[in-house]
Simulated scan of single mutants.
Amino acid sequence: MSALFFAVLSEAKPWLELLQAKPLANSRKFRIFQKDSHSIIISGTGKLPMALAVSEYAHSLSKEERNQMKVWNLGIAGSNNNELLLGDFSWIHKITEATTHKDFYPDRILTSHFTRETNLTTFDRPITKEQNINRFLSLTKEELDGVSLVDMEGSGFFEAASLYFPLENIAVGKVVSDHLEGKFCQLEDVEKMMEKVAKTLFEEWISPLPWARTDPIETMDWPQVENFVQNLRLTETMKHDLKKSIRFFRLRNPSSPIPFPDESAKANLKSKTDLKTYLETWRNSLHV
């Protein structure tokens, strides 16, 4: 099961052709195309439309379907890095919301054909290095310091998707479309760039998540964990979050034993705050 979110049709068109997807008649506000268990959603430009599209789509799924769904956002992005050429593809390992300065950290794609990673900053308007260009926000070299790629959807996608889908199911990738010259890309150029990427990434996108078919931690790891926490009075939410972290660790460390916190420290847990801190420290150790 896979869902792929684009801002505009020109980004999605090569993927629609490869998937041979058909539009859903009842796709409500946003355009949804589907074939079998794979969906392509076109949100419109901007972080808010993207977040709303993710939310609407997520509400059409059951909890089990969300847990098994691979959820990606792909599209074009302007580059402040001249070493990245037009058409170059990068996975995003950090997204910054320009307005709030809030940072998000997507999981890294460990087995992709594409290995380059970089950061992405999401703005409310198209960005340019040039001055006084209509419809573009002009930024100085100092204001762009540390910025690699820019777009208008990434933070909206990731913040919304992380509310509904496991973090390890979510990925963001961008294709360099310009170097912030203050010009809008031609639709045919966008389609060509995305077509080149789609030919390589399509099979990766439609392939099942490694953990979607079986969940070995239910029989291998979780019984040990439940035994360890049986006297801690964890809430169901705490157990759910801990299980996600155990799964995260096991996927990246197939042969390693689960790291448990110090048994003796449990005796010092006097309050709910102590318990939350204890659990958070443990979960952090599972994500190293």
Rank of each mutant, 00 (worst) to 15 (best):
C185T: 15
S177R: 01
P223H: 02
M220V: 09
D189F: 13
R233F: 12
D221C: 01
P223K: 07
K183Y: 13
M194Q: 12
R233P: 00
N169V: 10
D221P: 02
N227T: 10
T214Q: 05
A198Q: 10
T237N: 12
I170A: 05
V229K: 00
M193W: 08
T219R: 05
W211R: 07
P216Y: 07
D221A: 02
D221Y: 03
T214K: 06
E226D: 07
N169K: 06
D151M: 06
K199H: 14
W205Y: 13
Q186D: 10
E168I: 13
G182T: 08
D189Y: 09
E204F: 02
I206N: 08
C185F: 05
D189Q: 13
M152F: 04
L232E: 08
V229C: 06
L187A: 15
F157P: 00
Y164G: 12
V197C: 04
T235M: 02
F184T: 11
E203T: 14
E153C: 14
I170M: 07
F157E: 01
E159V: 12
F165K: 01
E218T: 07
M152S: 08
S177C: 05
K199D: 07
T214H: 04
V229E: 00
W211Q: 08
E191K: 11
F202G: 10
V172D: 03
A160C: 05
V172F: 10
N169L: 12
R233D: 10
V190L: 14
V176M: 06
W205T: 11
I206W: 11
L209A: 13
E195I: 05
S207L: 01
E218F: 03
A161D: 09
L209T: 12
F157D: 05
S177Q: 03
F165D: 11
L234S: 07
L180E: 10
P216G: 07
P208T: 14
M220L: 12
A160E: 12
V190F: 04
K196P: 03
F158D: 07
L163Q: 14
N169T: 06
V175C: 11
A198H: 04
D189V: 14
V229N: 00
G154F: 00
I170T: 04
N227V: 04
Q186K: 06
V176F: 08
F165E: 13
M152Y: 06
D178K: 13
F228K: 02
D221Q: 04
L201T: 07
L167N: 14
Q230E: 08
I217E: 13
W222N: 02
L187H: 11
P223C: 09
P210M: 14
P166N: 01
L232M: 15
L180V: 10
K192R: 13
F157L: 09
P208K: 15
T214W: 05
V197P: 01
E204W: 03
E168G: 12
F228A: 01
D221T: 05
S162I: 05
R213I: 11
V229A: 01
W211K: 09
E188T: 15
Q186L: 10
L209F: 13
M194T: 15
E188H: 12
S155P: 00
K174A: 00
E236K: 12
K199A: 09
S207N: 03
M194R: 02
Y164F: 15
E168M: 15
E153N: 13
F158H: 07
